[in-house]
Each structure stands twice: as C-alpha cells, then as structure tokens.
C-alpha cells in the first residue's frame, strides 16, 4: 500500500487499480493469472483485501491462479447453474473415459460435443428443471455468461476451454465429498 504521510494524508493507488476494481467489482468476474490486473492484485493483496473490506464490506478470495470478490449473498442462482453444469459435464466426461482433470485443465472442448453430452445425459430431469440449462438456446446464453465471468474462455464459435477459475468449483465438489465421507465414517 502506498501511503504518503506529509501534510495531509494522501493515498496513492497502485497502477492498474481501475482495472482491478472494474474486473472484480463491476464485472463481478474471476481475475486470472496472466491478466495484467491479476499481477497488480498479486503485488498488493493485503491492500486490496483491506480496500474491498473497508469500502464495500466484501471479502477478496485470492488463490494462486485466480481471485474474485465474494458476493456476500447466501445463494447465487448462477453459482447453482455452474455447479449443475460442471457436475453433469464431469460425470459425462468420466463416463466416456476421459481423464477428467487433464481434460478440464489443459484441453479445449467443442460446444458441439458438450451439447451432445447434455442432450444424452441421464441427468435429464435436473437439466430440465434448470432454466438456464434446459435447452440448447438457454445453454448458448449460459456459455456467454460463463465467458463474461471468465469461467470459460470462448476461443471461437466452436471451441472453448476452462480457465483456472473452474478449480474453485471442483474444490467445492471435493469438499462435498469429504463432508459426506466424514458423515459416513461417523455413522459407522
């Protein structure tokens, strides 16, 4: 944090401050490693943690590959949609024999292929009940939202890949599994 305590107390902000605030606060997106704004954030993590807490009452979630501002809302419909989307996708990828982590972290995926998986998925009922995932048109809009929030990166009309932000949701899934495992063990 750059502070200057001469005659009046004056705060100077890091270079790229506006980009950081715009990405995190206005766009509400994941800031990713490789993004210039992420570099700024990385160098001033403590400052930004304090900045967002003091100014907006929001906590900054900072990981080595991605960062974002927690909404402070109890439940976010987009978050639920992302979880359902990733849950079904992971299940289908595994069923088709892909190496899950490798596929999500390093490979590009075709919209067409993902669409086919969703059309044939055995989680049809769940998808039907999810407004944003129920048909191809709804999913197209959903992909655009994921792109805007930087959870996926659309390479062109046919291809996309997941950004490191998807790991946040995978961690969530792991924590669910561990929680249930613990419950099961306690029951035993």
């Amino acid at each position: 944090m750059n502070t200057d305590t001469t005659a009046e107390r004056r705060i100077t902000f890091p270079d790229g401050h506006q980009d950081v605030v715009e990405a995190l606060l206005v766009d509400g997106r994941f800031l990713l490693e490789g993004d210039p704004a992420f570099m700024t954030l990385k160098q001033h993590v403590d400052f930004y943690q304090a900045f967002f807490r003091e100014s907006f009452g929001l906590s900054l979630e900072y990981h080595s590959e991605y960062a974002f501002l927690q909404s402070g809302r109890d439940s976010d419909p987009l978050s639920r949609d992302v979880c359902i989307f990733l849950g079904v996708l992971c299940y289908e990828l595994d069923r088709e024999g892909y190496n899950l982590l490798e596929q999500l972290s390093f490979h590009t995926l075709e919209f067409e292929q993902v669409e086919q998986m969703f059309e044939m998925s055995s989680f049809r009922e769940v998808l039907d009940a999810t407004t944003n995932l129920q048909d191809a048109q709804a999913r197209r809009n959903f992909y655009n939202r994921l792109h805007r929030r930087r959870i996926i990166e659309k390479l062109d009309d046919q291809l996309f890949r997941f950004t490191p932000a998807h790991k946040y949701f995978l961690e969530f899934a792991r924590s669910v599994a561990r929680y249930n495992q613990r419950l099961a063990e306690e029951e035993e």
Binding site: G87, V88, A129, V176
Partner: peptide, 21 residues
C-alpha cells in the same frame, strides 16, 4: 470430485452452493 458432484446432483436445488463473485 466426481462423488462430490454426485452428492450434489442428488439434490441440486437444495444443496448449498459456493459463493460467487
């Protein structure tokens, strides 16, 4: 991860979800 998702997908609209930006 997969078993976590399966637990989640058992009750996708009741299960708590991670906080989003």
């Amino acid at each position: 991860i997969l078993s976590g998702w399966l637990y989640f997908l058992e009750r996708p609209f009741l299960h708590e979800v991670p906080v989003m930006p």
